[in-house]
Nucleic acid binder design. Structure first.
Lengths: 355, 355
DNA sequence: CGGAGGTACTGTATCGATCCAGAACTGGAT
DNA sequence: ATCCAGTTCTGGATCGATACAGTACCTCCG
């Protein structure tokens, strides 16, 4: 039989409330009595107030959920995501709150049930398609939701933390344009389903992945300004967001004629793969072909990669804070963090020669 | 005002219990009534049974905690850990259970409070020193605890899932011995605190990190059998479990005379760093110097690394299953999974020449 | 027609804690 | 002696749900 507050109270000869106070509001009772209670609790093997009872009464679960799709490992394989989780978890801990992982592997009944029955105070959506039924279930809970990488139909209610993706890629584009680049290839993931290699898209607008779509929009807009049509930009779909898959995708850009003077990757991880592909062909990044990434993960600096710096931990921190205490002012429920173009040696003047 | 079962019950004109049954035990009421209830619930904006109330009544939190030290990112940076988490999370999901991350960054009051107030049904300890106060707090909760990488004082109660670390490294050692290796260096992490580089240890037994200690023991024992004394084996402490830090540590082994004929890393990630260090010196792995790792992460195969294969996802799966439904039989609360020596090109006959 | 056996639903007790209004006591000022 | 303010502790109501025993009703069978 588990011990409860009542057991301890009876043993000491005080009321439930007093034992509760001994744990949660020590200033409400005399130090001597508190000491006596704690001693009795220890003797009885009472483990302290049960979190479930407390949660029910207080109306606070003491945890926030992170919705992850399609798999848990996706979120942890990406170094950017790891940093995000770190910021989130650390902030949560400071608020005595845990982080509940909810993998939405299949958007099936199990996933639905998990979302519906998660004891949490809010949801953080990291990379989940808006049409997931599990997302609807999350909305139905009526809890605060902060959205860090997707734009769905329900955005009016959702809080948001992120950067202006399109503005960031416009900055990268301007940099490349100033260096004379006009023939470019863009490598990303989830541009289209399944297919790996060059894809033909009427416009970025149809892309489901929020991040890919917005980043591509920035590039489209800025290159359009200098007369490079969207249809002249080669877009290549990578199988996944890994260095190796980036390298594979880069082959489609580098082995075509005329070779692009610049290969733009939508993430640093992919860009590192592009660098590998260049090295394998004896090409020099920043000289023969320029390469740009996105995120500024630690590896980016070590490889002299031109990229966009955004603080993943900061983003995680803000996400947690929005969830744990949602501002009433609608304007501050939508946080746009700064992002900064970092120019390194992987980008240089466009080579005129290699048509 | 939030809606409850009662609100819906009143609206439909039935009892609370019936509404509860409509959600949790549909077979207990007529389909028509259930339909009517669901409709009313939707109209009223009732989100379904509140998980906290349910948890309290059912006595089941619907989540398991993973205790992580010293930081969340540690668990996600290591590819082996990522796989472990994946196995754990997927199994948990199948049981309609979430996974709560509890970072024990500092073993401070916050961490203690988080452990004490986590609404969970059990704890999974992944890599936490046994002396952490937070561990004591976890024990005090009286919940099932499964331990996957540490051996503390409280082991009588703890469940365990893992491999026979020492037996596995003995197998690697035998393989190296058969190839003629007698002069070896071992690279690991947390062999001693702080210091990076060669460390002098009387014996592996004093090492706090369970994994490092057990793996070293295996090597000590098997080399002792062929007359190589523990004191003749160079042990090198790496700053952390990363490829780069492995490379740094490898320098201490490779740049000494006489150079070891084999460099043993206690993890694949470190071993990859050793390979980098070899490449930087123009040495060939498996020919000039043999290299062995541990874990068989995907990168290991791609780099022809001799290693020990153990299934991380399987380990995670078993951990979750032990927690969610602890076997009463003490013997089956201690699961030892198989591990297998995988010989690849990174190990070869010892070079006699380079004294 | 009476009783056995189902099905469909109700009502109360309960899970373990916290909140809050108020009681009892203490000590000091009037 | 009386009143007041402050501290310490109590008891009942409450959070939202589920378990379970029990009631009402319906059907089938001898």
């Amino acid at each position: 039989m588990r011990q409860t507050l009542q057991t301890v109270a009876d043993a000491v000869g005080v009321s439930r409330s007093t034992v509760s106070n001994a744990y949660s509001r020590p200033d409400q009772l005399s130090p001597e009595l508190r000491e006596k209670i704690m001693e009795a609790a220890k003797k009885l093997g009472y483990a302290g107030p049960d979190p479930m009872g407390r949660s029910l009464r207080r109306g606070r679960a003491g945890a926030i959920a992170v919705l992850l799709a399609p798999t848990v490992s996706y979120a942890f394989t990406d170094p950017y995501a790891v940093q995000f989780m770190k910021g989130l978890a650390e902030t949560a801990e400071r608020h005595e709150t845990g982080v509940l992982l909810v993998p939405l592997k299949d958007d099936d009944e199990d996933a639905l049930a998990t979302v519906q029955s998660a004891s949490v105070d809010g949801f953080c959506v990291y990379c989940v398609p808006g049409w997931f039924r599990a997302m609807k279930a999350a909305w139905a809970r009526g809890l605060p939701i902060v959205n860090s990488s997707y734009q769905g139909d329900d955005d009016a209610e959702a809080m948001f933390v992120g950067i202006d993706e399109a503005a960031a890629t416009r900055a990268v584009g301007q940099h490349l344009i100033a260096l004379g680049h006009r023939r470019v290839a863009v490598i990303g993931t989830q541009l289209a389903d399944g297919r790996v290699g060059p894809v033909t898209l009427e416009a970025p607008d149809g892309i489901e992945s929020y991040v890919s779509r917005e980043r591509l929009r920035g590039y489209r807009d800025v290159f359009a300004e200098v007369g490079v049509a969207w249809s002249d930009m080669v877009t290549i779909n990578a199988a996944g967001n890994s260095r190796r898959e980036g390298e594979e995708a880069a082959a489609y850009a580098l082995d075509r004629a005329p070779r692009p003077t610049a290969v733009i990757a939508l993430t640093d991880v992919l860009a590192l793969g592009v660098l590998d592909a260049l090295a394998a062909r004896g090409l020099s990044a920043g000289h023969d072909v320029s390469v740009a990434g996105f995120d500024d993960i630690p590896e980016a600096a070590r490889n002299q990669l031109t990229t966009v710096r955004q603080s993943a931990t900061e983003r995680g921190r803000v996400a947690a804070e929005l969830l744990l205490d949602p501002p009433s002012d609608p304007a501050s429920r939508h946080v746009v963090l700064p992002a900064e173009l970092i120019v390194r040696a992987s980008t240089g003047p466009a080579q005129k020669g290699n048509l």
